[in-house]
Design a protein around this nucleic acid. Structure first.
Lengths: 356, 356
DNA sequence: TTGTATGCGTTATCAT
DNA sequence: ATGATAACGCATACAA
């Protein structure tokens, strides 16, 4: 038993022999070919059950040239946003009978380059790729000979299909929400200085637009750098800003992890949220609703992004997608919770008021 | 281009033709066979590069009877503990050059049964399975003809390898910690009434042991049911208990999601943590350290569990594991943070004091 | 050190 | 409605 031929090693031939039919007939039964005599079908099915036969997918794949799997490349599953995205993509793919193979890039340039040319690409019919390290200058690398859908804000106008949301608009809405609740010293946590592409740049742009509309200047002291968008870096950026003595009455975390890190830092100093400082995040991960206080956030419509990406990719695989790369912009919503509007809004957070 | 033969369709034969060698030599080069004349190797590599050739993994799998992939079946990636576990398993597998195929069961009996016999099993060399719905009565189903490692507390003494931690011990330690800080009315959130196997039963057992050791009775009013261990159900259970007017000075959430839900419910009522009510969780997910206040928790050694499970499974695949099923019990630690000991412990949470 | 030939388990193309 | 047989692309036993 140990090792070697772990599969019972049952093949179609065995089933055919027992059922007293040819291998072709077995194949027909398995693949739902309609013109089979019911009694033949029964015999075959009985033999399958008796032997515990299962199709060898490798053989089928080899024969068909397709694998029924798609790749999903994300930075890390331990980042809640990507875990939830993976969940959504798996469910969306499932509805099409397709399996998802997840790859972690750790957001390193090296691993992201590898994803594009890995041997794994041979194992999947297509790829949904959410890069974090590669950028505009690598755009040409995305002209690959397999179906690919890009997510995120690193590559625009590239040679592959792309699903994203209006980051600028969304960030502007979040900032405006803070302004509307009377905040004037709004810190931005998660900036990437010098970058002109990517979520950080776009969201900061929306932030600056909202300030400009309100006639407020951008105070560099309120711009908190954070290369990685983790809880820890959010807490550190918040700490630095507070240590510097910068007056702050609101925080816009460029994602929820950063915002939760900021909440943590504020809590540690005994600064009341939202009474002294309001906090809003971005991504609306599940954590947000259950933070203390519940965290307001921008909801990017993760389910929708996953669904569209999978549909698009499978169309590409089937050859039914448009010749030109498709660019899809999805909707967002503002999930307003206690961290920006105070205890007046003490609702069960899952239903946090959602405003378009 | 569109669809059909997306692979350039380059095979070893093409490479062999261009390089002026036989297909065997190409195969040798690709598989690192040592005895090849350097110039031959160069010619082959040049041809590979020129044609952009990549091995067809389906064909290789078919030929070798192994896939280099292992399955990981978990309830949901949107539960942080399982997302983090998946992350750890992927990294552990990577060190062995093995790919992980993740499957979600949604913790339903149907899906968990399916995992055991799915066609996907043909696509993987083995399976790491963390069931939540199947239990002792299904033990025999785990006598499968492929390598499998079980995680969790649903199946003990089954026919497959098993990696778990001492749940009873750990829960006892957590409860004792609350007792040592002077708490006497300790609520348990996440109980599964009537169950005798599974994490809920074991952890409740540890809780009751600790109470008994302290000479305290088990008050049924302090036992909060929660079938699913999500944040929402934790908040609901906490709410029910408080609505009933049950006096409480501490909460033991049977996992961190429940505990975070409880924190949320307490926060909503303006009950101070830990001044009025102390809270401890279980799993030590990343969220715990960044909750407000930072959540004390039982750290089950996720990395270690993942590493051991992968190692064990790959030994099983290679046929080098012991004949008898292996049972591994891993260590745990208590991560003590502000939610149980107050603001005196205002350390950066990532380093929350860890006590064996 | 390299080449030839065979088979892995399917599906698909013909026949019948 | 079913059967015989040829690929699919690779790895390997065996030969040279």
């Amino acid at each position: 038993m140990a090792g070697k031929r772990r599969q019972a090693g049952v093949t179609m031939h065995d089933v055919a022999a027992i059922a007293g039919v040819s291998i072709k007939t077995v194949s027909n039964v398995i693949n739902g070919y309609p013109y089979i005599r019911p009694e033949t079908k029964e015999r075959v099915e009985a033999a399958i059950a008796q032997l515990g036969y299962r199709v060898n997918i490798s053989a089928r794949n080899l024969r068909q040239g397709r694998t029924g799997m798609i790749g999903l490349a994300v930075p890390e599953l331990s980042l809640p946003y990507f875990a939830e995205l993976a969940d959504s993509v798996i469910r969306a793919a499932e509805r099409h009978g397709v399996i998802v193979l997840i790859e972690q890039t750790n957001a390193t340039r090296e691993r992201e380059l590898e994803v594009l040319t890995s041997q794994r690409r041979h194992l999947t019919d297509g790829l949904i790729f959410s890069p974090l390290a590669l950028g505009t200058e690598d755009r040409d690398l995305f002209a690959v000979d397999y179906p690919m859908v890009l997510l995120g804000e690193r590559i625009f106008g590239g040679p592959a299909d792309h699903v994203t949301m209006s980051n600028v608009e969304a960030a502007r809405a979040a900032t405006r929400h803070l302004l509307e609740t009377g905040r004037r010293r709004i810190a931005l946590i998660g900036a990437h200085e010098g970058e002109t592409v990517g979520s950080a740049a776009l969201r900061q742009q929306g932030y600056e637009q909202a300030l400009a509309e309100a006639g407020l200047p951008v105070d560099p002291a309120l711009i908190g750098e954070a290369g990685l968008w983790h809880r820890a870096t959010g807490a550190e950026a918040m700490d630095r800003m507070l240590d510097a003595g910068t007056p702050v009455d609101a925080v816009f975390g460029l994602n929820d992890a950063l915002a939760i890190g900021a909440l943590h830092a504020l809590h540690a100093r005994g600064i009341a949220v939202p009474d002294e400082v309001a906090v809003i995040g971005f991504d609306d991960i599940e954590d947000a609703a259950y933070a203390s206080p519940p965290l307001s956030s921008v909801a990017p419509g993760r389910e929708e992004i996953a669904r569209i990406a999978v549909d698009l990719l499978l169309q590409r695989v089937a050859g039914t997608a448009p010749a030109e790369p498709v660019e899809v912009i999805t909707d967002f919503a503002l999930a307003v919770r206690e961290s920006t509007v105070g205890a007046g809004a003490l609702v069960r957070p899952a239903e946090g008021a959602v405003v378009a």
